[in-house]
Design a protein around this nucleic acid. Structure first.
Length: 350
DNA sequence: CACACGTGGGG
DNA sequence: TCCCCAAGTGT
C-alpha cells in the first residue's frame, strides 16, 4: 500500500535542505517572523521565468543594488534597465518589469498588491508569478504551478497525459497538496525538490522525501515523465549586421522596436533575418568589408548565421539608420548576446 | 491551443 | 554537434 504524499514531509526536507539564494528568506528566519520583501520576491520571480538560478544570481544582485526599491526602479531610465537586463534574454520581461514597477509605484503606493486578481493584472505577471508572489511574499495558500511542480505532480501520480494537455489535472494535484501552514516555504520546497532531486533526467529518487508516495517510482516510470508533445526542428535563418565605427570611435547603433525579437534592445543596424539570403541594406554609405567569420547564434525557434560587415566612416557622414553612440557611452555588455557576438568578431576574437 | 520570445549549461 | 531544458507570459 503506497503512502500518501504530505506537505509536512516536504517541509521537513526543506527545513534541512533549502538552498541559500539571494532572494530567499530562509525557513529559520521566516519562523522567527522575518517577512520577505515583495519587491525582491517579484523581481526574482520575473528573472527566474524560463531562466536558471545560476544565470539569475548576478543580475538580481546588480538590480537590487542599483534599484533597492520598486520606486527606485520605477524612476529608472528605460535604456538603463534594458542595458542592465542585456544578456538575460526574453527582453519583454524587462519592458514589462518597468511597466509593472511604475504601476505599483503610481497606483499602489509602492506596495505590491496581495490580491490575486490585482496581481494578475500587472504587466508580466501571469498565473504562476501571481501565485508565487502571494505564497512567497505574503504566505497566502496559493498553488504555484511551474515546470518543476508539473514534473513532480506528474511523477507522484504517474500521469502519462502529455503536456500541456495534462496541465489542468496537474493543477488539481498540486492544489490538493498545498497546505494552509507555511504555504510560502512549501511553494519554494516543491520547486527546490524539482530543481535538485526530482530532476528532468536521472532523478535522485533515493534522496526524495516523497519517494514512498510516488506512483512513478513504484512503477519505474519517473525518468520518462512528464510526457511532452514532440517539438519542431529549428530552421536556420541568415542575416547581415553592419558595424560602423566613426573615426572618433563612436559606433553606429539602433534601438529595436518594442515589439518582436530583442524588442527595446540596442543592436547593430542590419538586414532582416530570413531563411532566404539577405538583401544588402547598409545603414550608411561606406566601404564595407565582410569579416571572414560569421556569428552563429540560436534563438528559441531558429538558428541564425550572421554575416558581419564593418566600415570606418568619416565624421561628417550622416547615417540613414541608427545613431552614433560615443565610445565612452558604449559598452558591449549593454547589447543582447547575439549583437555582442557580432561585436566580438571585430576584436580578433576567433 | 500554438506560437513567439533568449540564453547558457548539460548530456 | 545537437537537443533538451530552466521559478512563463502575451498574443
Amino acid at each position: 500500500m503506497r503512502e500518501i504524499a504530505q506537505a509536512a514531509d516536504l517541509l521537513d526536507w526543506y527545513d534541512r535542505h533549502a538552498r541559500v539564494l539571494p532572494w530567499r528568506t530562509p525557513p529559520a528566519e521566516r519562523l522567527a517572523g522575518v517577512a520577505p520583501d515583495p519587491y525582491r520576491v517579484w523581481l526574482s520571480e520575473i528573472m527566474l521565468q524560463q531562466t536558471t538560478v545560476a544565470a539569475v544570481k548576478d543580475y538580481f544582485l546588480a538590480f537590487t543594488s542599483r534599484w533597492p526599491t520598486v520606486a527606485d526602479l520605477a524612476g529608472a531610465e528605460d535604456a538603463d534597465v534594458m542595458a542592465a537586463w542585456a544578456g538575460l534574454g526574453y527582453y519583454a520581461r524587462a519592458r514589462n518589469l518597468l511597466k509593472c514597477a511604475r504601476v505599483v509605484t503610481s497606483e499602489h503606493g509602492g506596495v505590491f498588491p496581495r490580491d490575486h486578481a490585482t496581481l494578475l493584472s500587472l504587466p508580466g505577471v501571469g498565473p504562476y508569478t501571481a501565485a508565487a508572489i502571494s505564497a512567497i511574499a505574503y504566505d497566502d495558500p496559493q498553488t504555484v504551478l511551474d515546470g518543476n511542480v508539473e514534473r513532480v505532480m506528474a511523477r507522484l501520480h504517474d500521469e502519462h497525459t502529455p503536456l500541456p494537455a495534462a496541465k489542468p489535472v496537474l493543477t488539481d494535484y498540486a492544489a490538493a497538496l498545498t497546505p494552509d501552514q507555511r504555504p510560502g516555504d512549501y511553494a519554494q520546497a516543491v520547486m527546490d525538490l524539482g530543481a535538485t532531486i526530482c530532476t528532468p533526467k536521472r532523478p535522485a529518487c533515493g534522496l526524495c522525501p516523497w519517494r514512498p508516495a510516488c506512483a512513478a517510482w513504484h512503477n519505474g516510470t519517473a525518468a520518462e515523465l512528464p510526457k511532452k508533445s514532440p517539438k519542431k526542428r529549428k530552421p536556420t535563418r541568415q542575416g547581415i549586421a553592419y558595424l560602423a565605427r566613426r573615426v572618433d570611435g563612436a559606433w553606429l547603433l539602433e534601438r529595436r522596436p518594442d515589439q518582436g525579437l530583442l524588442g527595446g534592445m540596442l543592436g547593430w543596424p542590419g538586414s532582416d533575418w530570413a531563411e532566404t539570403p539577405p538583401v544588402e541594406a547598409p545603414p550608411i554609405r561606406a566601404e564595407w568589408k565582410t569579416l571572414p567569420a560569421e556569428a552563429r547564434h540560436t534563438f528559441t525557434h531558429f538558428h541564425l548565421i550572421l554575416t558581419v560587415k564593418t566600415a570606418l566612416v568619416p565624421m561628417e557622414r550622416v547615417p540613414d539608420r541608427g545613431e552614433f553612440v560615443p565610445l565612452e557611452e558604449f559598452s558591449p555588455s549593454d547589447l543582447p548576446t547575439v549583437m555582442r557576438k557580432a561585436f566580438d568578431l571585430t576584436r580578433g576574437g576567433a
